[in-house]
Design a protein around this nucleic acid. Structure first.
Lengths: 238, 238
DNA sequence: CATAATGTTATTGTATACAATAATACAGGA
DNA sequence: TCCTGTATTATTGTATACAATAACATTATG
């Protein structure tokens, strides 16, 4: 998950290494590779038509991202994400999104407000048409903008990491018109608080937005959310 | 900064790549390399007596750690840490250490309590003798144990990353008997709350402990804390 | 038959060779 | 002089070769 890094996301999407990195990450997060599956440099390299070198670099990075466990001289294994990880991340986000909104009150720009408002408008449109892929994409964008408005590289980065990490879960969460519309309403309320520069309200609404997401997830049949999240083996620490 | 990863710290300290990685990281965090300094694969490899390959892998990882900015086909540059980053991390930690203490109430073990109590006892001893290096080391250990007691891989990891990241700053912070002793008192109070399983108090005390650290830092002459943290160049985003 | 030793194979770890790209220096012309 | 184009050099990007290690199978031995 990430790199809880105080870092820019500079991993070039267009270099060979960057492409390999993103490809493997997507395949792990979307369940193509299963828990504990071994990722062999040679095999992956052949699949993607590249040599072992960029694959190795990508795997080393994924190790830091926490998605892969590398045992020296042995191999790289998929770590994946557990139910508890998901729950913990949502709890952490509840706090940090609140902090983000608090800071945003001070730094948000006219331009960002416009972009956020346009985002919600579009999202309503797609939600009503049940085009949930677009809704998820817009939700991504909404939060990314929000993270920018905090004016904090550190906070933006950690939230961005977590948000991306939960991509798969969110796809389920937003796949109903009711929740999608409700989510948009919550977004709208947050923006209004930011416009009013009402620090307390903004923080509370942003926190509650995440808590509502947790609640929404818990109301869904568990199987749907976590079906690809296999039980960890006995070596897993937490 | 780091990988805000939901990951195990598996980077092997004893493999070539691992050693190179840790060496460069330490050199960045301790100020051997300055802001924006270019890190050349060949040069570093020669200095450490290894080829470019492990250096490259290390640099790619440091990119994810947020300590290095890699421009494709150009080079790797030291990012470093700004005053604002430090402040932001402390703000984030204020929230997360509170959450950690809250969770710890449920999961802390007898053994962990003993280890924490021993830790404080020792720390007082060294503080009175003005052996501040040991005090810092024990403070590291104290917080690491605390993070373990949260029973959350995710939370432990992010807090661990931030804590390590601020190593350099904390060395200044704890370098007075007064602050070191006070810090120990705060630690003692936190443990007592954990023993009593008083969730509310534990959370508050843990949060306040971090806030006190910020306050303490701000009372020190700025130069001491940040002297190696150079101004970012115009390309820096935040 | 079970087990230990050994040889074989597969896989990762590291070094190096070559290709692609970017920075630099220099020369020529306006 | 200043600008521009070109050649040279330095550096990174990728592929590959070789070394070290681990996993596996096979054989020998009790």
């Amino acid at each position: 998950m990430h790199s809880h890094n105080v870092h820019e996301e500079v991993t070039d999407k267009y270099s060979l290494r960057g492409r390999v990195f993103h490809k493997i990450r997507e395949d792990i997060l979307s369940g193509v590779y299963k828990q504990n599956e071994e990722l062999k440099e040679k095999t992956i390299g052949e699949e993607l038509g590249v040599s072992r070198t960029p694959v190795r670099e990508a795997l080393r990075q994924l190790e830091l991202e926490g998605l892969v466990n590398i045992i020296p001289n042995k191999g790289a294994y998929v770590i994946g994400i557990t139910k508890k990880d998901v729950k913990d991340i949502y709890m952490i986000r509840t706090l940090l999104e609140g902090l983000c909104a608090r800071w945003a009150c001070e730094f948000i720009t006219e331009e960002q407000i416009n972009e956020l408002e346009e985002n919600i408008y579009l999202s309503d449109f797609y939600a009503k048409k049940h085009k949930f892929a677009q809704v998820v994409e817009l939700d991504n964008r909404f939060h990314e903008i929000l993270y920018e408005t905090s004016n904090s590289k550190v906070l933006r980065h950690i939230l961005s990491d977590y948000h991306h990490y939960l991509q798969r879960v969110r796809k389920v969460s937003l796949a109903s018109e009711k929740r999608a519309i409700q989510s948009n309403e919550e977004h709208r309320a947050i923006i209004q608080a930011l416009i009013n520069k009402d620090v307390q309200i903004a923080e509370t609404l942003a926190s509650e937005h995440i808590m509502n997401t947790i609640r929404n997830l818990e109301e869904l049949p568990i199987g749907n959310i976590y079906e690809e999240m296999k039980v960890e083996d006995k070596n897993a620490k937490n």
